[in-house]
Each structure stands twice: as structure tokens, then as C-alpha cells.
Design a protein around this nucleic acid. Structure first.
Length: 578
RNA sequence: CGGGGCGUAGCUCAGCCUGGCUAGAGCGUCUGGUUUGGGACCAGAAGGUCGCAUGUUCGAAUCAUGUCGCCCCGACCA
């Protein structure tokens, strides 16, 4: 493609509002243009990169035995009502009515497609002989994000590859899951993304039923705990901690004293008011576990983990108590709960770290009152200690004697054993070889295609711009003529461009009559891996200049046979991402 | 949803506090010329409902109220 014939609106300055590298550079490199909050046009360069990522995904999905379909983005609301996800999604689901022949037809734009595929499979699959089956599509999803942000990372409209596996047995599901997991590893490697496969919350199935694929990046919205020693990695929701050996405090216990703390209920407010640190404070959270009340004690600087609590107490459902229940149990408005002097006796569970605390600051179960100097056993009893909080940096690893590190990450893929959640709700069944009817067992597997691009830019760009891997780069080679007004130069550049195209190299030909500085800056900014300069300086000696985007120094090659040599270099680089 | 910030030329911004002639600069664009290896130079030109509405005023980009848009931070943390 000739630069002069396409649309690559590069920018020297950073547009107002763009802050993180991927957003800034995608705008500056002329890859995208914002239409409104959370919706971007992909311009030629951005769209080519997106399609390269798509193509890699497609190849690997096909190799893994999945078959491509294309479902509508427009969906009837009834399907979502069948599984209760109209409520579950809430405002995130984009719903609307259209009028047809005087009647209102309610619809939604698909935020994902479990209901739609399950409906499809229900209609066409009825025998174990037709299973297993894995369907996938690469398609635009719509989610009304409360707050779209970070450029292309969180948008209301995005490209997703979503695959769904259908099996007659759990073993079949496990095999499919493993196949998808392996395919994902290949996909992200081929895209040149440094990723980590982390354990994620798996919902009703438990075990190793869910993994997220994370690109480690400072601007990522997700938090991952990682133990470099054992390779253990999990998202913050899921991460276990190793056994925390908590020594009992040897500090002299102080007397329990009530203090007036008017209007300060939160940990932050109390610590400010009493000039103490959050880790000296104790949070008392009132939950309902399967509708029975429960008090949970967590050190003030820690975060409760509801999944861990739910599993620890063996409940199916866990939710924070509402204000009325909190008041009934503690006798105080929300913000002043504590384990001493609860109005109603409820089981008290505590996180392991609470065992090492002394002279704690706790709510006094009375409005605007706190206790200081609260101590275990003397002042209150704990029924059971367990790991009930989010893991955090520095916690012991559950798999080695190392420590967990906290990293920010961008979620680029997710594999999940669904089980029968949707097939059950929608009645997708099959007959086995004994003529028995069973519910189809499902898995689902997603990849955020736009996020592959964004995470590459977040992690691989430099001060001069984007640095694409050969596999995703919108063009593999950029031919820059310097100077284009010189007939001899442009003739040589034209010829090289033609030969590279003929050799199957994706080539961008910067044929603009611009000064060299402009062309070099732009070439760096848009991140094409290999730059070829055709200029008077080299031509005199019968040479061309080659420069890799990742290298400082250029090298000269003879003009004769240049296209072949370049094609060879490109092929070699392509091989690294095969 | 809560809090904060910003809307002036295609882009980045000045002007606003303290209202007053034809609203400015740089970049980009267009014309002509000189240049040509890391975002050139000279001369000229085009390009603006100052986000929108209402109000105050002799007079509003500037003050007030409302509204819309965009960006950032935080969101069951007791």
C-alpha cells in the first residue's frame, strides 16, 4: 500500500484525554479514532493489526477442532430472560424495542453468546453421536460499560472471539478445556504477548475450572498474584495464601476503653480520627450465609474475600447483610460493628491474621462509639480462624516457600468450564447410547481481540512509538523513499515496492514527498518491524539501508537482489511467531 | 453512581480571574519559491455557531444558572 493512497493520520502531539501508552500511541499512530466514549473507529493501520490477530486466532481455533460460525449481534430478549441474565447483566445489557407491524419487539445487543449458541445446539444436536462439538465466532460484543476507559481497553463495543464446547461427558469437557487452554497459549505466543495463565474463580464447578490469560502491564485493571519460584499465579479474587503462621502478640494488653468517634464509621475515617494505622483496626463484617447471619473479622488493612468466606463456612450463598439486619444484630448503624457486645449472638469467624493482633480498635456496636484496647479471648471469642481475605503482596506462596508478588494485568483471554448452567436452563439435551436423556455439558472460551493490540502496545512500545511483532504488525516492511522528488530514487523505490509485493511481503510504501525526518519519525511511530530506506546516499553505491524497529543501527544491503533478501529476513522473523 | 477536571481553528493550547475595537499562537492544510538522511525555511492564504441554552449587562469567549459532551479517581470495605 502506498502511504499517499491510504489514511494514516499520524499526530505529533498527544490528544487531550489520552493517558496510557496504548491509547496515546494508537491515536498518534493513526490506528483509531474515537467516535464517542467507549466506541472507536479502527482506521486502516489499526484494522489491519486487528485482522492479523483475528487470523492467528482463527488458525489456531481451527487447528484445535473448533468450527467457525457467525451469530447475530441482534438477539431477542426472550433468550436472556430464559436464563435470568436480563437481571444479572442489568444496565450492562443494551436493550431496546423496535416496532414491527405495529407491535413492539424487544431485543438486546449480545454482550456474549451463551444463550444464542445453546439455543442453536439445542435445535440441531440431539444425539451423543453429534458430540463433542465446539463452535466459535469472532464478533462484535456490546456492553454498556458504566465507565468506559483506558482507550481501547474498556469499551462498550469490542471484538471478541468466543468459543463454546458441547460434550456428553465431563471427561470430554476436560479434554476440550485442555485443548482450548493449549490453543490459547499458542495464540498469545504467536501474537508476541507476554502472558500468564492464572487461576480464576470458577463458580459452581470448582477446582481448576477456570483460567484467565493475563498480559502483565502496569496499566492493567486486574490484579494478579504470582510466585516466581513455583510459577503459581492466580487473580486476586482466587489467590490462596500459604499457611500464615501468625505469632500471638506479646504486647502488654491494655484495658478495653470506649471512645467517642462522632460520625466516623469507615476504617479510613477512624484511623484518621484516632491517628492510628488501619492494621491496628479490626473490621467486623456482617454477612448472611445461606440466610443465616455471620460475623467475619478482618484486619483493617485487608480485604475480605467473599468466595473464601463462602467456601470456609460451607455456604451456597453469601451476601453482606443489609443495613436493617446489621442494626438488628449489632444494635448500631453500619460502621460501628464490633465483636464485643453483639445484641444477637452470631457465629464469629476471623481471618488467620487476626490471631496476631492485640489492643485492637473495634466498633462498639453503638452509634459513634469505638473501643480501643480490645483483645482476643479476654474481650471476645472467635469460633474459627481461616484464610478469609484477599491475598496481597508479600503473603506466603501456597506452592513454595517464596512470597507472592502483586502484578497489574490486562485480561486478554478466559477459559471456563460452564457445566450445565445454560444447557439446563434452556433445555439442551442429548440421548446417550442407552437411550437415556442427559443435559449437554458446556465450556466457554473468550479472547478480547482489541486487548491483544492494546496489551502489546502497553508492554512493547518505546519513546518513539509502537513496536509491533512481525505477526501482528499492520505491515511487515515499510519502504521509505528519500527523497521522493528525485526521479531515480522514486523509480528504485517503486521497483522495490513492486517486487516485495510480488514476494508476498506486506509492504507499506511511504511515497510521500516529505522530508526524511518526517518519514523516519512516522515509521517509528507506527511501529513497522523493518524499515527500508531508498535514498540518494545509498543508491550512489548501489545500496539500500535496512533498519529493524528494535535496533539502534541500520545496515546496508546491495540493491541488486534486495527484494529477495528482505523477503527472506521477513520470513525468518515470521517463523519466530509460528 | 459519588467526587474532581476540561470543552476556544483539523490537533495542542493562550485569552476568562479584572466583560469593551476585526478572538490569538504553534503544529497541520492550501498556493508559490528555496530545500532534502531524524518532525526544514521564506512569502502568502483558507479555516472559529468560543459545546449548547437561558439570564445579567449598553456590551459576554470572559459573569451566573442550567444542560450536553469528554477525561480522570473511587464505588457494596461497615
Amino acid at each position: 500500500m502506498r502511504w499517499s493512497q491510504t489514511l494514516i493520520p499520524t499526530m505529533k502531539e498527544t490528544p487531550e484525554g489520552a493517558e496510557i501508552p496504548s491509547h496515546v500511541l494508537m491515536l498518534r499512530a493513526g490506528m483509531i479514532h474515537q467516535l464517542m466514549a467507549g466506541a472507536y473507529t479502527y482506521l486502516p493501520l489499526g484494522y489491519r493489526a486487528l485482522r492479523k490477530a483475528e487470523q492467528i486466532i482463527r488458525q489456531e481455533m481451527d487447528k484445535a477442532g473448533a468450527v467457525e460460525v457467525h451469530m447475530p449481534a441482534l438477539t431477542p430478549i426472550q433468550l436472556w430472560e430464559q436464563t435470568g441474565r436480563v437481571e444479572a447483566f442489568g444496565d450492562v445489557l443494551i436493550k431496546f424495542d423496535v416496532r414491527r407491524q405495529g407491535k413492539k419487539v424487544p431485543m438486546a445487543l449480545g454482550p456474549t453468546h451463551e444463550e444464542i449458541v445453546t439455543d442453536l445446539v439445542k435445535k440441531f444436536v440431539s444425539s451423543y453421536r453429534q458430540l463433542p462439538l465446539t463452535l466459535y465466532q469472532i464478533q462484535t460484543k456490546f456492553r454498556n460499560e458504566e465507565r468506559p476507559r483506558f482507550g481501547v481497553l474498556r469499551t462498550s463495543e469490542f471484538l471478541m472471539k468466543d468459543a463454546y464446547s458441547f460434550d456428553s461427558t465431563v471427561e470430554g469437557l476436560n479434554a476440550n478445556y485442555d485443548r482450548m487452554y493449549a490453543a490459547y497459549c499458542t495464540i498469545f505466543r504467536r501474537c508476541g504477548v507476554d502472558y500468564l495463565a492464572v487461576e480464576a474463580e470458577s463458580g459452581p464447578i470448582g477446582g481448576d475450572a477456570s483460567h484467565e490469560f493475563m498480559a502483565i502491564a502496569d496499566n492493567g485493571e486486574d490484579s494478579v498474584l504470582y510466585d516466581p519460584k513455583s510459577g503459581y499465579a492466580a487473580n486476586q479474587e482466587r489467590a490462596e495464601t500459604g499457611k500464615r503462621t501468625v505469632a500471638k502478640s506479646t504486647v502488654e494488653p491494655k484495658p478495653l476503653t470506649k471512645l467517642h468517634t462522632p460520625g466516623v464509621g469507615s476504617i479510613e475515617a477512624v484511623s484518621k480520627f484516632l491517628k492510628c494505622k488501619p492494621h491496628q483496626m479490626l473490621k467486623t463484617l456482617i454477612y448472611t450465609a445461606d440466610d443465616k447471619p455471620l460475623a467475619v473479622l478482618i484486619r483493617g488493612d485487608h480485604e475480605a474475600n467473599e468466595n473464601k468466606i463462602r467456601r470456609a463456612v460451607g455456604a451456597k450463598k453469601l451476601a453482606l447483610a443489609d443495613a436493617a439486619l446489621v442494626e438488628a444484630i449489632t444494635g448500631a448503624p453500619v460502621g460501628f460493628a464490633g465483636p464485643v457486645g453483639l445484641k444477637q449472638p452470631v457465629p464469629i469467624w476471623a481471618d488467620d491474621d487476626v490471631a496476631g493482633m492485640a489492643n485492637m480498635i473495634i466498633g462498639a456496636n453503638e452509634a459513634d462509639q469505638h473501643y480501643v484496647g480490645a483483645n482476643l479471648e479476654r474481650d471476645f471469642q472467635v469460633e474459627k480462624f481461616a484464610d478469609l481475605r484477599n491475598a496481597t503482596a508479600g503473603d506466603p506462596s501456597p506452592r513454595s516457600d517464596g512470597k507472592l508478588e502483586l502484578r497489574h494485568a490486562i485480561e486478554i483471554g478466559h477459559v471456563f468450564k460452564l457445566g450445565t448452567k445454560y444447557s439446563e436452563a434452556m433445555g439442551a439435551k442429548f440421548l446417550d447410547d442407552k437411550e437415556q436423556q442427559h443435559t449437554i455439558i458446556m465450556g466457554c472460551y473468550g479472547i478480547g481481540v482489541n486487548r491483544i493490540l492494546a496489551s502489546l502496545i502497553e508492554t512493547k512500545s518505546d519513546a518513539n512509538g509502537v513496536v509491533w511483532p512481525m505477526s501482528i504488525a499492520p505491515y511487515e516492511v515499510i519502504v521509505s523513499s528519500v527523497n521522493a522528488a528525485d526521479a531515480e530514487v522514486s523509480a528504485a523505490a517503486d521497483k522495490l515496492y513492486g517486487e516485495l509485493q510480488a514476494a508476498g511481503v506486506d509492504t507499506l510504501y511511504d511515497d510521500r514527498d516529505q522530508r526524511p525526518g518526517v518519514k523516519f519519525k512516522d515509521a517509528d511511530l507506527i511501529g513497522i518491524p523493518l524499515r527500508v530506506v531508498v535514498g540518494g546516499r545509498g543508491l550512489k553505491e548501489g545500496n539500500l539501508e535496512l533498519k529493524w524497529r528494535t535496533k539502534e543501527a541500520p545496515e546496508m544491503i546491495p540493491l541488486a537482489g534486495a527484494a529477495e533478501a528482505i523477503a527472506k529476513l521477513v520470513a525468518g522473523e515470521r517463523d519466530r511467531y509460528r
